[in-house]
Simulated assay, not measured.
Amino acid sequence: MKKLLVILFLFQFISTAYAQRADSFRFQMDLGAAAPKDGGIGALVNLEPQILVMDNLAFGLRLGATGMAKDVVYYEIPDDYIGELAGNASVLGTANYYFNYGKGRVAPYIGAGFGYYALSNIDIDDTDIDEDEIGDLKANFAWAPMVRAGVELGKFRIGAEYNFVPSSDLQSVNGEVVGKAINEYFGFTLGYFVGGGRWGSQPMKQ
């Protein structure tokens, strides 16, 4: 137990003693709320390993999962129904630029990414609709960009992102296009990163 505490202390000491530096590795984790473009609510989680190619520029790979409840357009049924999107998964290459030059612990940032979104099944919930007549509705896969901005405070982060996921056709089990889902959404996140040093700290002299 004592050895484990010593290891954890050394890891934290190394992380806080060094400022953000090129060639450093960091791993960030974000949790937050998702807001579909046309209304609804949801939640998201992002995991993102990054490498600092410059002191203030990081390239990464964002692995995300989002669950949302929102309305969809169905072509042959009345408007009084609810369409529930169970969730989507995404893998995006990303770049973040941080506006901090060793002058404090606050680091505003802007970023962008591009990658692949896998969209989940759609369920239609309405007492007047026979689910056997609708079948299992499935949305398509899509390539899409993402932009984001926020601020890091020490090792904590607050951010906002917008995912430009294109609309997708909803298909019945027979392959017939029966509706459309609007997939664009905002994300509002809180997170934390490990590794890479700490904003505002000065590197130890060798």
Rank of each mutant, 00 (worst) to 15 (best):
V91N: 00
N163M: 03
G187Y: 02
N140M: 03
K70Q: 15
R105W: 14
N121D: 15
M54V: 10
A107N: 05
P36V: 07
G87M: 01
A149T: 07
G187I: 00
Y98W: 10
F11C: 09
G115E: 12
Y185T: 00
E161F: 09
A89S: 10
Q202E: 09
E84L: 03
T16S: 11
I14E: 10
D23V: 14
F59W: 09
V173A: 12
G93C: 05
S168L: 04
G102K: 03
M204V: 12
F99Q: 05
G67D: 06
A95Q: 02
Y98H: 06
T127E: 13
N121Q: 15
P108M: 02
G113C: 01
G195T: 07
I129C: 10
K205R: 12
N88D: 09
V165E: 03
E131W: 05
L190A: 08
D128L: 14
M54T: 15
P36D: 10
F13V: 14
I134K: 15
Y97R: 12
L85D: 09
P49T: 06
E131M: 14
Y97S: 05
R198E: 11
R21D: 09
G179K: 10
F13I: 08
I14D: 11
G83K: 10
N183D: 04
D71H: 08
M204T: 10
I158N: 02
F188H: 05
V6S: 08
A144L: 03
Y117T: 00
A65G: 09
G32S: 05
N100M: 07
K37C: 03
K155D: 09
L119F: 12
A142E: 06
F11M: 11
F99T: 00
P108S: 00
G87A: 02
A149F: 12
Y18H: 13
S90Q: 13
V178A: 01
G60Y: 02
L10M: 07
T189P: 02
S201W: 11
S15P: 04
L4V: 11
L52G: 01
M68R: 03
V53L: 07
E161H: 05
L92H: 11
